[in-house]
């Protein structure tokens, strides 16, 4: 019974984790798992319903005699475009390129942001040095750097990745710095009384305390990074989802444009789902409910 409680604490679902309940006789309680499954069905079902209504309304509009089949292609045409892109493999090539850029740019941006945010948030004088950099980047949208990046870095792969780096960096660095600043004093004092050096307090107290902030910043960074990607691929790219859309737009293939938008939405949602999982895992100790 004792072992059961220990393992349940580790991997049980939150409702069954209440340790006091472990030794109690079984009483009739609604199974939290079935309640959650119901909620999941509602969430997915209602989500699809919303989309179905929007697509349906659009479809009805395209069926009107005055609707232009080229400018407002009906959903089957969009599906056909999707099928073509899947059949000739071009869709996967474009998704692959986009993901490659997002991942590389995101990782570089986040690593820089966490390093800089931790240093600026914890060490006072480092903050004095680094804060002007953070503050001057903060109010400017990453897209505004595009002209500058083109002129200074060029129109090749590094330019596109740099835009994503900037986009992912910004929210992550601001959040990380905030998290490092908001470490409760009692944790710092407890750590020092237990024998922690200033560096140990930085690494073992301030940093873990900032993880929920960092993860929230990274999630925003991933979203804005993906957003910036589409814009970055408008810079003389010959592949990627942004290119797919802009190229089709120039050729007035609105069905392909719509297909591209849907695909971007799906890919972005999947990326965020991964981020949510990572966030939930890394902040599993936190009492604050993560969204």
């Amino acid at each position: 019974m004792i072992d059961a409680s220990a393992s349940r604490v580790r991997d049980g679902d939150p409702a069954s984790r209440v340790p006091a309940a472990v030794n109690e006789p079984a009483i009739a309680m609604p199974d939290p798992r079935s309640a959650r499954r119901l909620q999941w069905v509602a969430k997915v079902g209602l989500g699809f319903l919303t989309i179905a209504i929007i697509v349906g309304a659009y479809w009805i509009y395209t069926l009107q005699p005055q609707a232009n089949q080229t400018l407002t292609p009906p959903p089957p045409k969009v599906l056909a475009a999707l099928w073509t892109a899947i059949a000739n493999g071009s869709l996967f090539v474009n998704i692959g390129w986009s993901l490659f850029r997002v991942v590389i740019g995101f990782v570089i941006g986040v690593v820089l942001a966490v390093l800089m945010g931790c240093t600026a948030g914890w060490f006072r004088y480092a903050g004095y040095v680094l804060n002007p950099i953070i503050e001057s980047i903060r109010p400017i949208p990453a897209l505004a750097y595009i002209p500058l990046v083109i002129v200074w870095v060029g129109i090749d792969e590094p330019a596109r990745i740099l835009i994503i780096v900037l986009a992912a960096f910004k929210p992550t660095v601001v959040n990380t710095r905030q998290g490092m600043k908001e470490v409760p004093n009692i944790y710092v004092e407890a750590a020092e009384s237990l024998g922690a050096s200033r560096m140990a307090t930085f690494w073992r107290v301030a940093f873990p305390n900032a993880i929920p902030y960092i993860m929230a910043g990274m999630r925003t960074g991933l979203a804005t990074g993906f957003l910036a990607l589409v814009a970055a691929e408008l810079i003389a790219s010959s592949n990627g989802l942004g290119f797919l859309i802009s190229n089709a737009g120039q050729n007035l293939q609105i069905d392909v444009v719509l297909m591209g938008i849907v695909v971007i939405g799906v890919v972005a949602t999947l990326l965020d789902a991964v981020a949510v999982r990572a966030q939930a895992y890394l902040t599993r100790w936190s009492e604050v409910r993560q969204t």
Partner: peptide, 20 residues
């Protein structure tokens, strides 16, 4: 001259590290 592990401190508020 500063905190030291040879003088353990127990606070009124909860000072247990929630991430550990």
């Amino acid at each position: 001259r500063g905190p030291h592990f040879s003088r353990g401190f127990v606070f009124q508020a909860d000072a247990v590290f929630p991430w550990l």
